[in-house]
Design a binder for these strands. Structure first.
Length: 273
DNA sequence: ATGGCTGATGAAATCAGA
């Protein structure tokens, strides 16, 4: 028995429905977590998702921007939606699957979309950056997440677009990105505190050694993002300590960045067995 | 050398992404 969890910032679920199908055929996820769905719940293309084999769907969307969604082949025993910084943003949804999903115990999958943080890496000058830092502080202290990580009767996973590339090899140029939002020391420190609050294991980096470059995002502004490979690892899969040793395989579907009408992020799939 | 692009909204230009 195994469980494959996939995370993908899709940058509009409606405009990219055709390649959702392609991603599902290639990665065969049991659980698919999307961010930046940009779709209110009552306009979500539920039937198309069900046709791909996901009978169980948990939404937390809003009009125009943000929004997360989690699809599953296995039923949910629980669904949760966190709200942070009192802004009413749709940036989190969690689902819990029973032991029959394949891991022997229930597993809770938290799907996050962390604020991007704007341009200027100074919380005094840039409210978006201040929001990003506050969001990280709140999720680090969130009792629900800490309880899930510590529960001996359950596995837990955190996935999503965390919008921070923590390691030097998570960006195309550590030196040049030190002052660019997504790789600044203050963000990396807060992401580290968030990770330590579980503690959560960065299973992508268990699968690909930290010495190797590993990216999940390439800017739309490059004419051909594959040419210079100026990417960043903004998307993450973390597992609770009981589950992390059971990571069996990972796929970063880099080729999806070159498909027609791509997202600027590519899907990441992790199989636990 | 990051921003030259992309998407949502709403019907043109602006905001946001990161």
């Amino acid at each position: 028995m195994s469980l494959t969890v996939c995370t993908w910032n899709i940058n509009s679920v409606r405009i990219r429905l055709p390649i959702v199908r392609e991603v599902v055929e290639r990665l065969k996820p049991d659980v698919l977590c999307l961010q930046e769905t940009k779709c209110q719940d009552d306009k979500f293309p539920l039937n198309a998702i069900r046709d791909m084999g996901f009978e169980h769907i948990a939404l937390n969307g809003q009009k125009g921007w943000h929004g997360v969604a989690t699809f599953s082949r296995h039923p949910f025993v629980d669904i949760g939606r966190g709200e942070f910084c009192g802004k009413g943003d749709a940036r989190h949804v969690s689902v819990t699957l029973g032991p029959e999903a394949g891991l022997g115990k229930p597993v809770t999958v938290h799907n996050f979309y962390v604020p991007a943080g704007g341009d200027v890496p100074d919380p005094e000058l840039n409210p978006k950056f201040a929001h990003k830092l506050s969001f990280l502080d709140e999720v680090t202290a969130w009792p629900t997440l800490r309880a899930d990580a510590a529960d001996p009767d359950r596995h837990a996973v955190v996935v999503g677009d965390l919008n921070i590339a923590p390691l030097e090899t998570d960006v195309w140029s550590h030196r040049q990105l030190l002052t660019v939002v997504s790789h600044t020391p203050v963000e990396v420190e807060k992401l580290g505190a968030f990770q330590a609050s579980g503690p959560w294991v960065d299973v992508m980096r268990d699968m690909v050694p930290p010495a190797e470059k590993l990216f999940t995002w390439w800017s739309y502004r490059s004419p051909d993002p594959t040419v210079n490979d100026r990417g960043r690892r903004l998307d993450h899969v973390w597992a609770s300590r009981s589950l992390a040793p059971r990571a069996r395989a990972m796929t970063v579907l880099k080729e999806a960045r070159s498909w027609q009408k791509p997202s600027d992020h590519v899907p990441v799939a992790l199989t636990f067995g």
